[in-house]
Write a protein that binds this DNA or RNA. Sequence first.
DNA 1: CAGAATCCTTTACGATACTG
DNA 2: CAGTATCGTAAAGGATTCTG
Lengths: 117, 117
Amino acid sequence: MTVDQGFLADCRARLAFDLLANTWNAVVIWALREGAERPGRLRERIGGISPKVLTETLRRLEFNGLVERRVRAGAPPRVDYELTDLGRSLLPPIEAFGVWAFEHGDEVMAAQERGGS
Amino acid sequence: MTVDQGFLADCRARLAFDLLANTWNAVVIWALREGAERPGRLRERIGGISPKVLTETLRRLEFNGLVERRVRAGAPPRVDYELTDLGRSLLPPIEAFGVWAFEHGDEVMAAQERGGS
DNA sequence: CAGAATCCTTTACGATACTG
DNA sequence: CAGTATCGTAAAGGATTCTG
C-alpha cells in the first residue's frame, strides 16, 4: 500500500505517531516482544523506569489495546502483561527504528555535539 | 542485521525512540519528505500546529542533524527547511508506522472506545 | 511572513513512602 | 512484589502579541 498526500490529514496516522509520542511506550512494547512478563522483571530488563511510570505506561498500552493484563490469584501476587495481536503487529515498525538507531545513532550524537558546542 | 537482547541497554536505541517521543517530530519530518518547504506552507500542510511549536520542533530537528535551515536574504523573508541525508534515512521507518496506522488504526480506536465506556 | 517573547495549562516523569 | 498515593520538577504544547 502507498501512503499518499492525505497522510497527515488522516487521524489514524496521527494516532500511530501518538502511540510513540512518549518516552516509554515503545520501550515497554519492545521489552514484551518475547512473551508475557511480570512487572518486576520488566523493570529489570528496561532499567531506569520507576514502578509508577511503568504502571502508567502499561495502563496506557492496555487502554489502547496493545497489551493485556492478566492476574492469577494467590498469596504472592501473580500479575503479568502480554502483547495482544495488535501490540505484536507493532513490533516490526518498532524494530525498524532500532535498526535505524544502530546504523545512524552515532551521526545523531555527532550532530548534538556540534550543536551543543 | 539483527537487533538482539542488548537492544534496550543500547543508548542509541533509546536515542532513536527519543527522536519520536514527542507529538510533532515525526509529523514534521514526514511533511518534509518531498523536499524543502517554507514554514508557512508546512503549517498549512500539517494543520493544528502553532507557529511557536513548529519553530521549536524544527530547531530540535536541526539540533539533531535531521533538518537543515536555509535563509536567503531579501525583502520578504525567504526561509526554508530541508531534510538532511540523515533525516531522509528516517523516512522508511516512519512510513512503516504510517502503513501500520492505516492497517490497524481502527482497532486502536475501537479499544479506546471500550476503555472509555 | 518568519519567529521571538510572554503567559498559561497540562502532563510526563521521577523519588519516595505506603498498602495488601 | 504489585500498585497506589503524594509531592515536585521539567518540559510540551497552545494562544496571543509583537517585531523585522
